[in-house]
Structure formats: C-alpha cells, structure tokens
Design a protein around this nucleic acid. Structure first.
Length: 273
DNA sequence: ATGCCCTGCTGTGCAGGA
C-alpha cells in the first residue's frame, strides 16, 4: 500500500512513495524477533526475505502486522519469501530453465503495481567445482526472463541476495576475495551483462562513489571493523528506475545480539506518473 | 593455505554459508 512519506522537521511538496526492502535473515526461525521488530519500526510496503532455512513459515505472525505473504521453502537450506501490504499474485516459484533444480531460490510475484522478483542466487563456492558451475548456469538462466522483461518494458524490481560483489568498491579489500566465487570474473561479467541490458543497480546509481556493505561475516569481528561486502542488490528495469528516489542500507539490525550476517537494503520509489 | 562463527539437523559432528 502506498503511503505519505514521513517528513519530520520540514514540509516538502507532498510525495507518495513505496518502500521495498530485502534481507537475507540466515534462518527465519533464529531471526524472527529481529524481523518482527524491524517490520514494526520501518513498516516497508514490501519485504523480500532470503535464507529462511526451514519449511515452517509463520504467515499468521506477518498477517497480524498487516502483511500478505508468499513463501518458497525447503528443509534446512535456502528459502525465499515476499511480504506485502498489498495483495500478492504469484507468477512463479522457480527459476525456469532446469527442471532438475529443486532449490528454493526464486519467487516472482505481482504486488503494489510492480513485478517483484526475489532471488537467492547460489553462493558458488568453492570455485572449480559443480557448485560454481551451478551458480554461473543459474545466472545464465536468470538472464533469459530478464531480457524478456526489458523487451516488454515491464516495471520489474529484482531484489535479493545476488552473491555477487560487482566491483572493487563493493568490498573492503579486493585481494581478500580474489579466489572467491562472489568475485570471479565470470560472476562479475554476468552481473555487468545484466546492467548492459538496461537494468539499474539502485544503490550504485544513487551513490556512485560510496563504499558501503550489506554483509559482514561472523569471523574476526568483521562488522566492528567494517570489513564487509555489498552483495544484496536491487536491479530495476528502466520503467522503475525512472521512479528511483532512494536506496539505503540499514546497518542497525547487524549490530543487534545474534544478528544475521546480512543487513536490510531499503529501496524507495516515487509514485508512477 | 586454513580457520575463524553461525545455523539446522535426529546430529552428538557434519554440511553449507560467503
């Protein structure tokens, strides 16, 4: 549902915006209190969740906060969900192109007047294995519908955990990631190919020189030292990019006790027209 | 070069994450 943007302290021209957030929670069961607290505080119109890590999905708890929801789950691993204040029409619960692929990593819906695609792109580590090949094939498969959405000039928001460090600026220390699947030339070339199609990286478009991260590993006080990477992204088709108002990383949940290793990214879009 | 830390599982250490 659209809402009047809060504007404490001053009164700009009335602007109607919609906020869409993405958050890899690294187990929904372990992070449920964080998610509920954050929803109450931020009240995004839409929230994309990744790494649910279980088959249970507490739709009722989200409904009590005013959210419709749709989830794609599997035992132990992966899992994605979309919450929305508006009704949700589900288009697809699996990425096309491989009938053998049973991972819960893709959810495509229509809500709030947008096509919203939630992805949990494969990690791909270690390189030189089937896991890395799976990641590259998954990216190739994703690019097929992405081309169609561009051709059809659809208003599409693709958000989620891409497991891609796009450029050097997106990590604290590039040398540390040289042998990692998230930073391989093949991985980054595919991400760049998505941008070349016409997709806009919402955060980077608004903050061309900002070194900000969405993930800090649990080791060696990485968050405290801000040794992180930017791997949670929003890619927008041109029709949506024209409405781009803001894209912000909310570091606060990462500082809580027992946090996810990722923190939310919040996209703000202006009203169409 | 590796582990660090965290999660789920029917486990009592492992796989997977990034």
């Amino acid at each position: 549902m659209m809402e009047i943007a809060a504007s404490p302290g001053y009164s700009p021209a009335r602007s109607i915006t919609i906020q869409i957030a993405t958050w890899n929670v690294n187990s929904l069961r372990a992070r449920m209190s964080h998610v509920l607290d954050w929803l109450r505080a931020r009240q995004p119109d839409v929230l994309l969740l990744q790494e649910l890590k279980g088959t249970e999905f507490p739709a009722l708890a989200f409904q009590e906060l005013g959210y419709h929801s749709e989830a794609v789950t599997q035992k132990s691993y992966n899992g994605v969900a979309i919450l929305s204040r508006s009704p949700i029409q589900t288009f697809s619960t699996a990425l096309p192109g491989d009938g053998e692929d049973s991972h819960a990593r893709y959810l495509e819906v229509e809500t709030a007047g947008l096509r919203v695609v939630n992805i949990y792109l494969p990690n791909g580590n270690p390189i030189g294995t089937e896991k890395f090949e799976y990641k590259l094939r998954w990216m190739d498969r994703l690019m097929e519908p992405m081309r169609q959405w561009i051709r059809a000039d659809l208003p599409v928001v693709i958000g989620g955990d891409f497991n891609v460090i796009p450029e050097d600026i997106d990590c604290h220390k590039p040398e540390s990631w040289m042998r990692d699947a998230l930073f391989q030339p093949e991985t980054r070339a595919r991400y760049r190919a998505m941008l070349a199609m016409g997709y806009v990286d919402a955060f980077r478009a608004l903050h061309p020189d900002e070194k900000s991260f969405t993930f800090w590993d649990y080791f060696r006080q990485a968050f405290e030292h801000n040794r992180g990477i930017r791997i949670d992204h929003f890619l927008l088709t041109p029709a949506v990019a024209a409405r781009l108002e803001a894209c912000a990383i909310d570091r606060s949940p990462r500082a809580l006790e027992k946090p996810s290793d990722h923190t939310p990214v919040v996209l703000t879009l202006r009203d169409p027209g």
